[in-house]
């Protein structure tokens, strides 16, 4: 097991190298220049040239890459061109809110999707199935900016019980944090629940047709035990796979939900940095997101082994 983990972690290195190269080159392919973006309309050519020299943008690309990569190896992600903040703390401070929001949204989506999916599968082609499938379709089709604004109008204006936006650190004020979390987590959770519900339904339908389920039923085991323990227990693998993918995507940032709720997450940070051609921030964000994605995939694989002993490696 230890060797397996080490091997998987070692495979991170080529991935990170490739990602760093792609991140570095992609943002430079986009037309526009960080110095021009920073100095704005009034800047004269001399000021732009001076800033380009200061940021080492006048050097050949390979030299820029190597000085960036060399600093990275020392743990130095550089400073943001826009505003001069250090990149690593900046990313870390944005990743926290995104991670908390993602976890809450996933939790909400599971609470909705698993029961709905199981019910839809066990009562296939009945009214319950149609209702659950219809609601899931709605969740998928509602754009989050629309649902978000609707929730704000309802819970912040008509019934003013929750803040319309903002993020409160859980370390500073747990109650305030939970209150600020509810609406964005619901908005995001609704969209996620839809696909998880569909996946749960499909996976359950397949398992429910299996021989051992029929055997369990024939033995007279209580229906709820058959469904939850025998069937659902074996239907989890594709759901976990989907959750892993969802979590990876969420940690890359949920720009629209973050924008609607003024949630200071990594999605908005990255998009702003792309628009401002803030190379160090974009590169750092892509690298960080890629690392997280790989780690989450690894975690997903480890969870498989908990669910299904056959998948354990020596």
């Amino acid at each position: 097991m230890g060797r397996y983990l080490l091997g998987r972690l070692a495979s991170l290195l080529p991935i990170l190298f490739g990602t760093s190269l792609v991140a570095f080159l992609l943002i430079r392919l986009v037309p526009g220049d960080p110095a021009v973006a920073l100095l704005g309309m009034e800047a004269d050519d001399a000021a732009i040239a001076a800033l380009r020299a200061k940021l080492a943008l006048d050097q050949p690309l390979w030299m820029q890459y190597f000085s960036w990569a060399a600093a990275l190896l020392k743990g130095d992600f550089g400073r943001s061109i826009q505003g001069g903040r250090e990149v690593l703390p900046l990313l870390a401070s944005a990743l926290g809110p995104t991670a908390l929001l993602s976890a809450a949204a996933l939790a909400i989506s599971l609470v909705i999707a698993i029961p709905a999916g199981v019910i839809a599968a066990t009562r296939r082609n009945t009214a319950a199935d149609y209702v659950a499938s219809f609601v899931a379709l709605c969740g998928l089709s509602l754009p989050s900016f629309w649902l978000g604004i609707l929730l704000i109008l309802t819970f912040s204006i008509t019934f003013p019980i929750l803040p319309a936006s903002g993020y409160v650190s859980p370390l500073a004020d747990m109650g305030g944090f939970l209150r600020s979390l509810v609406l964005p987590a619901l908005t995001l959770g609704a969209a996620l629940a839809a696909s998880t519900m569909r996946m749960t339904r499909a996976s359950m339908l397949e398992v429910l047709r299996a021989d051992y389920v029929r055997t369990a039923r024939a033995k007279g085991i209580a229906p709820s035990r058959v469904i939850w323990r025998h069937a659902f227990g074996n239907a989890q693998i594709p759901i976990v796979t989907l959750l892993g993918i969802q979590m990876g995507q969420l940690l890359g940032g949920v720009v629209i939900t973050e924008t609607v709720f003024a949630w200071p997450g990594i999605g908005k940070l990255t998009v702003d940095a792309i628009f401002a051609r803030d190379y160090p921030v974009v590169q750092g964000a892509v690298l960080l997101t890629a690392t997280l994605f790989v780690l989450i995939n690894l975690a997903t694989d480890l969870i498989y082994t908990l669910i299904d002993p056959r998948m354990r490696v020596a």
């Binding site: 704000i152 003013p160 924008t259 003024a262």
Partner: peptide, 18 residues
Amino acid sequence: FRPMADETVRVTNLRSGT
């Protein structure tokens, strides 16, 4: 000062008193 990029979001936050 709280940045709110979307104009609808700004107005909604004002109406809610946030």
